[in-house]
Nucleic acid binder design. Structure first.
Lengths: 139, 139
DNA sequence: ATGACTGCAAAGACTTTGCATCTTT
DNA sequence: AAAGATGCAAAGTCTTTGCAGTCAT
């Protein structure tokens, strides 16, 4: 028998928080975000629901950035940029790998490919500026 | 003044261990691998050297798989496949994103792109078989 | 001799989990 | 009333770090 799913205010709020931002939040971010409105929210509940959402395909992991797992409510395939300095994660909606690459990998290697992740790493404009500033100290 | 770099037996062994495998090892893997030959090796030293190698471009992180960071001695761009079940990481040397994608992202978004990561997730043949077996229990 | 590297163990950071309680159905 | 969801705090993992001792130059 499959485990029943019940409504919960917290769960709804957690999902809404993730859907309401494009920052690809971490568990901690969601927790801090909801605490004002839900003072009795527990970080454990955030984690449990993130696991729940991922298992049910409502959110997707964008990977671990600077030690924290980051999540995305957009589950259709798209690419990301990750700033190595500040950890910002940004969507690149129109950057796509070649369409048939997944199929090629499946066929060529015999893997059951479920998804494909294209991620760019570097510095965002903000951090580029700050880095430049550091390299040109007050002479 | 730049910090001097000295030779160290352990460091050499750690790098050799990473270069000598294609399994994209974790710190723990390297530690277990070297323990027979270097009984006094410390896990902290493995971590410190992994950080050192990455900072000097001798190894590259392949990301965090099932809670552990995985490393790759091959630092030329190439793609990976990660098995969601057993955590195996495999190289896909001939699968490459379009050549100019990094430049496009730099130009279009103003990021200083340092590298691009193309990773496929799914099940390796081994885990596919075992999964099938589970789904067809002894009738 | 200097200072880089290491072992050891403690501390840190993030995440998971057990159990009693509260909520939904 | 039954069982899922939560709060709380403890435990679990992986990783980093301080310090004293060791080793390379």
């Amino acid at each position: 028998m499959e485990r029943a799913i019940r409504y919960s205010k917290k769960r709804e709020a957690i999902l809404a928080a993730i859907r309401g931002t494009s920052c690809h939040p971490s568990a901690e971010w969601v927790y801090q975000r909801l605490r004002p409105l839900h003072p009795d929210l527990s970080l454990g509940t955030v984690y449990r629901n993130l696991t729940f959402f991922r298992a049910h395909g409502l959110v997707q992991s964008v990977g671990v950035v600077q030690g924290q797992e980051r999540f995305d409510a957009i589950t259709v395939p798209h690419s990301h940029f990750v700033c190595n300095c500040c950890g910002t994660v940004l969507d690149l909606p129109d950057i796509r790998p070649e369409r048939d690459l997944e199929r090629t990998v499946s066929a060529q290697y015999g893997f059951a490919v479920e998804r494909c992740e294209l991620t760019f790493h570097g510095l965002c404009p903000n951090c580029t500026d700050q880095q430049n500033f550091k390299e040109e100290p007050l002479s």
